[in-house]
Write a protein that binds this DNA or RNA. Structure first.
Length: 275
DNA sequence: AAGATGGTCAACCGCTCGACT
DNA sequence: AAGTCGAGCGGTTGACCATCT
């Protein structure tokens, strides 16, 4: 048995919001809040809109703490890292970017970052491709607390990489490999960003390559909004002390690099940063 | 100058999950 | 325990705008 629709779509206005509707919703929210019920809100507020539409408009556009405009490099880095670890869980990623919505992050990924990723991982020798991929590697490495160790060298398209005996870790993609030293990170920690929501690591555990985990979006959204570092599952990841956002990021041991399978890429991504 | 193409982003859709009865 | 409901999520669409040919 199917669910009854939340509203009669033939009787409510759809499409772009007018300034008048925005003002009505904002005024109502300022005075009353949601009242715990989005479905009944439009009727109470005098809007001929579906409750879901009102919720979306408020959360993605009218909320006072929404940040509009371009994403910063630091925000990009957060998205890179979290996407590489947890995938398209936009609400979780957005929760680490104050003022950004899941819709914002999703759009930004689909329109900018995903393309950069695809471009950067295309095999070949053109300089732009190489630079993009290496930029990507650097972003990943920064989060892992790795430092660039050597200049790239031609390694073909092998997708193999690992931590080796001299304590180096390699990121491979395209026709080269970058190596990073596990010790003494030299990058400015990206973690200097101020994060408002902690991410609790407890229940992902679906990646066959790692048993590390992260809580569901609902759990995240329900957590305290006080400043907090990311928390990691020390029992399953083996990465005991990436102190996370808000402190310097270190991975102390057990680095493994696995192919996360982004499109046609032979790129190799860090896995188990501590999530 | 005009049509074609591509990029961006707001909005919608359908689904899952948890709360409640 | 099962059914219902609302909230919230990720995927997708489509309108609008900019750039290209």
């Amino acid at each position: 048995m199917g669910r009854a629709p939340c509203c009669d779509k033939t009787k409510v206005k759809r499409g772009p919001w007018s300034p008048e509707e925005d003002a009505t919703l904002k005024n109502y929210m300022d005075k009353n809040g949601t009242g715990g019920n989005w479905i009944s809100l439009p009727r109470k507020a005098g809007l001929n809109r579906c409750g879901k539409s009102c919720r979306l408009r408020w959360l993605n556009y009218l909320r006072p703490d929404i940040k509009h405009g371009c994403f910063t490099e630091e925000e990009d880095n957060v998205i890179w890292t979290l996407y590489n670890n947890i995938g398209s869980r936009w609400s979780v990623i957005a929760s680490q970017l104050p003022g950004r919505t899941d819709n914002d992050v999703k759009n930004h990924w689909n329109t900018k970052l995903k393309k950069l990723l695809a471009t950067g991982s295309t095999s070949g020798n053109n300089n732009e491709t190489t630079n993009n991929t290496r930029y990507h590697h650097l972003n990943l490495a920064r989060f892992a607390g790795l430092i660039p160790k050597t200049e790239s060298s031609d390694q073909g398209n092998s997708a193999c990489c690992d931590t080796n005996s001299d304590n180096s870790t390699y990121l491979m993609g395209g026709n080269y490999v970058d190596s990073f030293d596990l010790k003494e990170p030299k990058f400015e920690p990206i973690s200097q960003l101020s994060y408002s929501n902690p991410v609790e690591v407890s229940d992902l555990g679906t990646n066959g390559n790692t048993s590390s985990s992260i809580s569901s979006a609902r759990e995240v959204s329900s957590l305290s909004t006080s400043s907090s570092n990311l928390a990691f599952d020390e029992n399953t990841t083996g990465f005991a002390s990436w102190s996370g956002i808000g402190g310097v990021n270190y991975i102390e041991d057990g680095i493994n690099l696995v192919d996360m399978g982004f499109g046609p890429s032979n790129d190799v991504f860090l896995s188990g940063f501590g999530f």
